[in-house]
Amino acid sequence: MSGAYAVLHDPQGLLDAELPLDRAPHEALVTAVLAWNDPDLAPSDYEQIALQLTGHARAVAADVQRLAAALPKSDGRGALAEVVLRETESRLAAPLKGTAQCVQHRARLVRSLYTRLDRLTEPAPATT
């Protein structure tokens, strides 16, 4: 049957846990969304962009969680990651709206998660 597809339900994100993130196109989307001044899109277009950013935020959050969990308890980066992850869950729980503001909030969330991910992949700071 051509054109048919199946929707896969994977609430724990187990299927893509080992796949690398496709970062460049999502960063470009975040940059474009945050540069908006007064876009004139249909509410359904805003919702689709917000859904794309939401899905990617969840994938980045899973990577942040995995990296933070692997850190020693004495590494403060793990505690900071937990704060960001709690904030992420709170913000992702908010319902999507067909507005530019909603999309921009999701874009800021993705940017914040990438910042935290980058900090987790840097070498641990030297202790004195």
Rank of each mutant, 00 (worst) to 15 (best):
L14F: 07
Q104A: 09
L92V: 13
D75Y: 06
R86P: 04
T31G: 11
E18M: 01
L92Y: 01
R91L: 11
Q65A: 12
D40V: 07
L34R: 10
Q104R: 05
G55F: 02
Q12H: 11
E89T: 07
A4H: 13
S90E: 08
T88C: 07
V33W: 00
A68W: 03
A126S: 09
S2M: 09
N37R: 15
A107I: 13
A69T: 12
D40M: 08
V103P: 00
L14N: 05
A100S: 09
A94G: 04
A57P: 02
P125V: 10
Y5A: 14
D16R: 01
P125S: 08
A100K: 00
T128K: 09
S90M: 09
L8S: 07
E89K: 06
A68G: 09
R119D: 08
D45S: 13
R111Q: 14
A124F: 04
S112L: 15
A50Q: 03
A32H: 12
D22N: 12
L15K: 10
V33S: 05
A4Q: 10
L120S: 12
E87I: 04
A32S: 13
D16S: 05
L21I: 10
I49S: 01
L71P: 02
D38Y: 14
Q52S: 11
L41W: 12
P125I: 02
V103G: 02
R116S: 11
A107H: 11
N37L: 00
E18P: 02
V83R: 11
W36S: 06
C102I: 00
T127C: 06
L14E: 13
D22T: 10
R91S: 04
L109V: 03
L113H: 04
A50I: 00
D22S: 09
T88K: 05
V83D: 14
D40H: 12
P39S: 05
A100H: 00
P125A: 11
L41I: 08
V84M: 15
A107N: 13
Q101C: 00
E82I: 03
A50H: 06
P72K: 03
V30W: 10
E27G: 02
H26E: 07
R106P: 00
Y46Q: 09
L41T: 07
A32E: 15
V60K: 01
Q12R: 14
T127R: 13
A81Q: 02
Q12E: 14
L14A: 08
A32Y: 04
L113S: 12
R66Q: 04
H9E: 09
A100M: 00
P25L: 11
D118Q: 07
P123K: 04
V103I: 10
L41N: 05
N37D: 06
L15C: 03
H105K: 07
S2P: 15
T99V: 05
L19E: 01
P11R: 04
V30L: 06
